[in-house]
């Protein structure tokens, strides 16, 4: 993770989706761990960020992921009735339902955002969620539309607005 996120995007043919997964500590993280220890074969495009509960996942995390170059996101937690904190996932469900619909209205393809319930025992389901998310995003291509929102002068010395000639020497 030490390398800077490459916001240039890979060439369409060699495109490897970059996906951020926000998962709850109790169910999905353990499920993902199980997938690993069970040596299930799955796409390696996902960076997992573990949080205590889906109720702790602010929709801004997703926005931030896209800002920083993610092509897709996964949000996953405990099945209804299984929340370690009783109701965190119910609250998250409402929040993400609204967020999902809003993003679609704004023009973000919902296939870039995967929401799932994966329990601690569902290693195979985690694999399926990941593989499907990666396949979806791969089909959609890099999220260039979001990257195009970056300021023109992002990380390069050229001011916005008027074009520039070489520095007077």
């Amino acid at each position: 993770m030490s390398d800077a996120v490459d916001t240039s995007g890979a060439a369409a043919d060699g495109f490897e989706p970059r996906i951020t997964a926000f998962v709850c500590n109790w169910c999905t993280y353990t499920g993902a761990d199980l997938a690993g220890t069970s040596r299930l074969h799955m796409a390696s495009n996902v960076r997992i960020i573990r949080l205590p509960c889906t109720g702790r996942i602010d929709p801004l995390f997703i926005v931030k992921s896209f800002e920083r170059g993610a092509d897709g996101v996964i949000v996953s937690g405990c099945h209804p009735a299984d929340c370690h904190y009783t109701s965190g996932n119910y609250h998250a469900r409402r929040r993400f339902a609204v967020f999902h619909d809003l993003m679609e209205f704004v023009g973000v393809d919902p296939r870039r955002m995967t929401f799932s319930w994966v329990s601690a025992s569902e290693g195979a389901k985690w694999r399926d969620v990941v593989d499907e998310a990666v396949a979806n995003v791969r089909a959609l291509g890099p999220f260039e539309a979001y990257r195009a929102l970056a300021p023109e002068d992002a990380g390069v010395a050229a001011p916005a607005g008027a074009r520039v000639e070489a520095e007077a020497s």
Partner: peptide
């Protein structure tokens, strides 16, 4: 990296 301070005429 410095930003240029000369601008094209407009």
């Amino acid at each position: 990296e410095a930003v240029p301070t000369t601008f094209a005429p407009r």
